[in-house]
């Protein structure tokens, strides 16, 4: 009957969070998805193609899901009162947004596909808002992934070969950063691979430098908590 012990829920999960309404799943969760996508891109987004699925597609206007996603792409937080004006803000900041609807298949009803470009990078992610403001990133550039944004971490793309995971793990260990979860997936043996790591501590500046200098990684994004 008492499923969760003391390690679980705190009183500020009950009286909180402080957020922009109206909906933790359709607004707060959408902001967090936008933020996570922004950090994965790793630079200021210039162009976004956003495809809404299911309940997101049906009720986006009334819940302000469109504004929330764009607010997140601009780096706003769930309690920022500028969320309401995010579409105007995007125009001011030179972020070009294109909207569409798409059946994304067997995914959560509150799902969205974001195709983002900046000056340097391009990334395509699929994420869902799974309730209570919680999110799940499930696809990144065609790779399967599971990332909740609750913890900081990193995602990296590299040619599938021995030792890469160990190198990343050892850099983190050297900088006293504990790995909470790690997931690796690949196109095929010896093809390109993706690792998603969630950590208990934010990845510090020195750790970031060390990770960026690892030669085997084709791409790496350092992700704060969103």
């Amino acid at each position: 009957m008492y499923a969760r012990g003391v390690s679980g829920i705190g009183i500020f999960d009950i009286i909180g969070p402080i957020m922009i309404g109206p909906s933790s799943s359709h607004t707060a969760g959408a902001i967090r998805i936008g933020r996570l996508a922004r950090y994965i891109l790793g630079e200021e987004p210039r162009k976004a193609h956003i495809f809404l699925h299911g309940s997101f597609a049906r009720t986006f206007r009334g819940h302000g899901t469109d504004k929330a996603l764009v607010a997140g792409l601009l780096g706003l937080t769930v309690d920022d009162e500028r969320v309401r004006d995010a579409l105007d803000l995007a125009r001011e900041k030179g972020l070009e947004v294109h909207w569409g609807f798409k059946d994304l298949g067997e995914v959560h009803p509150n799902s969205v596909e974001l195709d983002l470009s900046g000056e340097q990078n391009h990334v395509k992610v699929l994420a869902s808002s799974i309730g209570g403001g919680e999110i799940l990133l499930s696809r990144l550039d065609g790779f399967r992934i599971e990332f909740s944004g609750k913890l900081p971490g990193l995602v990296a793309v590299y040619p599938d070969q021995r030792g890469v995971v160990a190198q990343v793990a050892s850099v983190l260990a050297c900088h006293e950063i504990n790995i909470a979860t790690m997931r690796v997936s690949r196109e095929r043996a010896g093809g390109r691979a993706l690792m998603a790591v969630e950590t208990d501590q934010e990845i510090s500046q020195p750790a970031r430098q060390a990770l960026l200098s690892l030669p085997m990684l084709e791409k790496i994004a350092i992700l704060p908590r969103v």
Binding site: I14, G64, R84
Partner: peptide, 21 residues
Amino acid sequence: EVNACMGKIVAAPTAGSCGIL
């Protein structure tokens, strides 16, 4: 109403029920 109008609220315990407490 503030919640419905995309204003800032404290979920208690949810956004949809944020006015009661």
